[in-house]
Design a protein around this nucleic acid. Structure first.
Lengths: 188, 188
DNA sequence: TACATCTTCTGACCTTTGTTAAAAAAAAAG
DNA sequence: CTTTTTTTTTAACAAAGGTCAGAAGATGTA
């Protein structure tokens, strides 16, 4: 849980009282790789800090899933759209590797927003960061070629390319696995 | 300014005291169509409520600008990435029509966050909404064809297609003006 | 009105990616 | 260590969009 406190402290000074409330809500969950955390159509009830694991977000498809995001250790993750709106999720979440998570429910978080000094500040900063990430991604999807996006991944997250099946990366980049295979051939 | 109060009240009950502080910061600005509000490379210092106007967000290019967003009356707008990070903007903002704006500076907003009950709540909800919008857009960019995105625009914002030059819409959809022209021909 | 400029459309050709199918390679299961 | 399943690669063809160039239409300005 130290990791989580550190994470919060990066955003705003956390009083002992606030940390006591916050940490009392966290529940530890462990699961195997390829575990579905949230099924499409279900309402997301959790915000999860990833102590260990890589997780993918995807829309399941007959042939190839549309994988549009990854989350890694040291971050919070959630089907945040569904979590915020409390409407059925349009996508699914799944662990890629064995996982250790610390989970908070929707109601827990509403309590935190009401009862702590820092809740709304952390919530605001978190949403702002998510916005910034999506914003960058939008520009990349409109501006860059699939090849450029692949090369960017290569430089920004070299371990990703080793750990994660190419077909998920292909989808994330916005092309079919066949097209990514051709891109890789062209580059090397 | 009533429009702005209504906007805030949709999110959270605003006390007279908070509204007094908030509204005291707002500065009215009027400008002609095709006015650049923020140049690329400058730091965004304003959050602007649009009383009247349509505004586009774009990365200027030699041949065709990359227009990736529009903002309309009744919303707040900003080069929010730059505003949040206080780093130079990677894109530009420009009025498409004559405009009436109510503007807040970055420092004003930090005061509001510190001094009001509602600041961080409104800030959080706003960032959450922006995240939701970008999230939907990401899925559309990865999932839908250019034709589908055009048809979606048609149904969701029919007035947009009349008011806004096609080349900007083409860019928003992710194709060249020529390609959009072909799509329109195919559809009709 | 006449001129200039900007926007939209059209056509020819090229490049990239999607699609289908199958082979090769790698990983998981027994 | 085999067998089975999954992942990655390759190839041939089709479809969509990019590029270049020019025509037609719309808008703005003197």
């Amino acid at each position: 849980m130290d990791q989580i406190k550190e994470y919060l402290e990066q955003i705003v000074k956390v009083s002992d009282k606030d940390w006591e409330l916050f940490s009392s809500k966290l529940k530890k969950v462990e699961c195997k790789k390829r575990t579905t955390l949230l099924k499409i159509g279900k309402v997301e009830n959790h915000l999860s800090f990833i102590e260990k694991s890589s997780i993918r977000l995807f829309i399941p498809k007959e042939e190839n899933d549309l994988t549009f995001g990854f989350c890694f250790k040291g971050q919070f993750m959630s089907a945040y759209d569904s979590f915020l709106t409390q409407l059925p999720s349009t996508y699914q979440t799944e662990t890629l590797t064995d996982a250790t998570l610390w989970r908070l429910t929707f109601n827990d978080l509403q309590d935190i927003y009401k009862s702590t000094e820092i809740g709304n500040i952390v919530g605001r900063k978190t949403a702002e960061n998510l916005f910034l990430m999506k914003s960058q991604r939008e520009q990349s999807l409109l501006n860059d070629t699939a090849e450029k996006r692949y090369l960017n991944l290569f430089t920004e997250r070299p371990q990703l390319i080793k750990e994660i099946p190419l077909k998920y990366l292909a989808s994330y980049i916005g092309v079919t696995p066949q097209a990514l295979s051709r891109i890789r051939k062209r580059i090397s």
